[in-house]
Amino acid sequence: MEYGLLVMGAPYTSQAPHSALRFAQAVIAQGHRLAGVFFYHEGVHNASSLMTPPQDELNLRDAWVELHHLHNVALDVCIAAALRRGLLSEAEAQRHGKTSFNLEAPFELTGLGQLLTLQKRCDRLITFA
């Protein structure tokens, strides 16, 4: 089956991203395809490349990136939710006159339409919030 995940909880604030990541690994281990993870609401914080937890704690951003590299999982971040909360790609930072940015590939800023497309395309969309 093809799966999609919707993540709406922030790392280190909510358990949701941890549950989502473990579910993602289990889905893949069972031979399903994980097409993409859509980050919305507070979930956009998962994409911050400035995330710096202590060394002995899981770096969630790196964990998502690894999932992308190993299994080609798309990591889409809602652009409206991200900009409001200060998560900007280099292009958006330039557009808004900001001197720094904290969102890089393989995370991609995209519209909410991408969430609805993921939901239609996948056999299952599971929410973690």
């Binding site: 089956m1 709406m8 579910f23 929410t127």
Partner: peptide
């Protein structure tokens, strides 16, 4: 376990999370 969680989502067409 987590695999059982995945199986439950396989068996149900719809999943709704209450948080």
């Amino acid at each position: 376990d987590m695999n059982g969680f995945v199986s439950l989502t396989e068996h149900h067409l719809q999943t709704v999370t209450w948080y």
